[in-house]
Nucleic acid binder design. Structure first.
Lengths: 359, 359
DNA sequence: CTCCTGGACGGTAACGTTTCCAAGGATTTA
DNA sequence: TAAATCCTTGGAAACGTTACCGTCCAGGAG
């Protein structure tokens, strides 16, 4: 009897640390059910054109053998892409990215898609390598939170792409993002309306989002007929909390410190708060993007926030539509709104910035 | 001339939203380089047994055509598993899980492995489905942060498995975890040494880790000859901050409230702090697992912490070794130590728990 | 009764890679 | 010089699935 490898009904004498159990194939199922290979395939894929009685026999055989379709072999067929999406992003430890990952994972999962996370080094070259790795895995689509640098190499990849949070250079593709300019404007208007006229803005380096938030900041000033002191527009060398902390120190120790600070990123907000605690100063603070425990800090933190999870969900939905071929519209551009969440730190009047030295 | 599909040298007239570019295959490369298929394969896989001159020709052809090996087809060969690991965990929004994901991703990436995230619903049944989905994708190994429930179905999967953070029932496999008992003991000893004798412990429901942390709590009490008031051992109905907040309210409003609280999870710690702020009470608090901004809260939070990233790294390393077949040792059990980080909340003396109502 | 239609089903050819085997040429050894 | 060996190379089989193309049989129309 030409049986595949061996049936494992006997207990192996050694612990099967990495059992080579060789899962049953459709051929095994076909043999067992006494039908042809094609019939099994038809049953597995919805069972059209198969007599109910036959289908039942096949299903029984599948159950008995514990058969599961080999997705790799399936994806090999021409035209069929694998049922996985790729997600390329920076630092999962940043709640912002983690939220996107979780949300897209949920949506993909509902459609039976898995999500492959490419490993992302810091440099743009590493990003490119990671993306190509993923393409060679025949993923059905790519969700990318792009780094700076050219992404035109994606044009010929033959895979639909959705950019998340910011667009990429050199390629036109779907993009899902938040209303950065509106958010920057919202935050700044809020501070201006409290009477602040010296509002510093801290910017992470050269992200697209950074520029838009700054634009909102400028627009708000213009609308209120307040001039921007360019020395209060701080381009940080890095996007982390430490850089923001250092910059805040310098800002606040100037002879003419700002009365309010707008931190354009969740990590930057953290750095700002650290510096202020150290300094014992209390200028108004507004952050971009909400973060856990923002309401639990000594002065709860006012932020402009958007629905980050929706960012991930939209991206996944859009990508699934593209991958299925249903959606052939020109590249979409989805922009989610921002809202101001007042908690206290953003509602401090200009004079509260004076030295308190309550330490 | 039997050319594959078509060469796309012409600019398509419509925007190629999801270009069907049909990437070049090894056959194309072979034709272009004027060599056989096998030779190309040998070059791609390290090029042993190929004359340098021939190899060079092949490499040029690869470059010119922009060829990338199709990983799906590669994984189809018997014995060859795909070069991806699967990671199954709960809520990526929890920094604990996010850290594991990031760390394992890094290690896997260094070995050229991608990480597939299975979508994980809440129920154990969903977890099982997700795992089987991943197995059918021929992943080279599984990292699982297991839910309760039986995992014996994994025994025949023919794939190495590493459990993370807690063991699973019904299967013996590698496991990487933290020293839960030691950590629980450390936290409790610390509080006892301050003179606390009424220490409440809040426990998330029925996790393995919960039981171990509780055991450490009891051991510390026994070692100090302090009896445990069983009414201070609080099993929460859910593992989230809300449940902990509610329980803390009830605890602190008792006629005989505890003078210290040990929150056995980062989310629980958050709930405890919320309740205490609301109540205006200040018992000592120690949390299990560090969290971002813990040092920035009104009273910085003392925690027992371990190197969560190392948890993820170890898991990935172990799994890669197993997958390569190099490591055939019996199931390993890696336990990482916990350390106490004193920040203030855990160093409050017993009498500080008295009503302050400073609000 | 014959022919045609259509549903059910079996078989086979791909998909792109790796691996094995055999063949050819060059080089060494007797 | 002939034989044996090695290195290089080409070709074909196989992996598990899906898609297509026939075949077979039943039933209805002419």
């Amino acid at each position: 009897m030409p049986c595949r490898k061996k049936e494992v009904n006997t207990v192996p004498e050694t612990f099967p640390t990495q059992a080579e159990a060789s899962r049953p194939t459709m051929i095994d199922v076909a043999r067992r059910a006494g039908v042809g290979l094609g019939t099994v395939s038809r049953v597995v894929n919805g069972g059209h054109g198969v007599r109910e009685e036959t289908a039942q026999r096949v299903r029984v055989a599948i159950e008995e053998l514990g058969f599961r379709r080999n997705e790799v072999a399936r994806a090999l067929r021409p035209g069929k892409k694998s049922s996985s999406l790729a997600l390329v992003l920076g630092d999962l430890t940043n709640p912002f990215y983690a939220t996107i990952a979780k949300a897209s994972l949920e949506v993909a999962g509902q459609s039976g898609f898995a999500v492959v996370l490419g490993s992302v080094d810091e440099d743009p070259e590493g990003e490119k390598r990671a993306i190509q790795e993923l393409v060679s895995r025949q993923v059905a689509g790519l969700m990318i939170v792009p780094d700076q640098g050219d992404h035109s190499f994606l044009a010929g990849a033959g895979v639909p792409v959705v950019f998340v949070d910011r667009p990429a250079h050199g390629i036109e593709a779907d993009i899902v993002m938040v209303d950065n300019e509106g958010g920057g404007r919202l935050a700044t208007e809020h501070l201006l309306s409290q009477g602040h006229e010296r509002i510093a803005i801290l910017l992470a380096p050269s992200y697209y989002t950074t520029g838009r938030r700054l634009r909102g900041y400028r627009r708000a000033h213009r609308a209120s007929h307040v001039d921007v002191d360019e020395s209060l527009v701080v381009q940080l060398p890095e996007g982390n909390a430490e850089a923001a902390e250092k910059a805040t120190f310098e800002l606040m120790l100037r002879p003419d410190p700002p009365t309010a600070l707008f931190a354009s990123t969740n990590f930057l907000t953290e750095g700002v708060l650290r510096a202020l605690r150290e300094l014992g100063r209390e200028p108004a603070v507004v952050g971009f993007d909400d973060f856990r425990l923002a309401d639990m800090l000594p002065t709860p933190v006012t932020v402009v926030a958007s629905d980050i999870a929706e960012l991930g969900r939209s991206a996944a939905r859009l990508l699934l539509d593209r991958a299925s071929g249903e959606d052939t519209r020109p590249p979409q551009r989805i922009v989610l709104p921002c809202a101001l969440i007042q908690r206290g730190s953003g509602e401090r009047p200009p004079d509260s910035a004076a030295d308190r030295k309550t330490r």
